Amino acid sequence: MRRPGVAIVKDGREEAESAPRRGRPRSIETTNAILESAYALMATTGLAATTIDAIARHSSVSKMTIYKWWPSREALLIDAFLHHAAKMLPLPPASAGSPAARARRHAAAYAEALQGEFGKVQLAVISECISKTGSAELFYARYLQFRRDALVDMIAAGQKDGSIQAESPPENLYDAIYGSLFYRYIFGIAPITPGYARSLVDLVLRPKG
Rank of each mutant, 00 (worst) to 15 (best):
L144F: 03
D11F: 05
S199I: 05
Y140A: 04
T133I: 10
E74Y: 07
A48S: 08
G46L: 15
R2C: 02
D11Q: 13
A103V: 02
L203Q: 07
S59G: 10
E29D: 11
L35V: 13
L77D: 15
L200M: 06
L200P: 07
A156Q: 08
A80R: 03
A157I: 12
F118A: 09
R148W: 05
I192W: 02
A85E: 12
P4W: 12
E137K: 12
R184H: 14
M88V: 11
P20A: 12
D11W: 04
A197M: 03
A176I: 00
I130N: 04
L205P: 00
E14F: 07
A108Q: 03
A113P: 11
Q122C: 10
L144C: 02
K10D: 13
I177G: 03
E29P: 04
R142M: 01
Y39L: 03
E167T: 12
I164G: 00
V61A: 01
H58I: 12
E36A: 11
L47P: 00
L200T: 02
R184E: 15
P4H: 10
I78N: 09
P99N: 13
F187A: 11
L151R: 06
D202H: 05
G12T: 12
T133Y: 08
R104K: 06
S135R: 05
G119R: 04
L200E: 00
K87R: 08
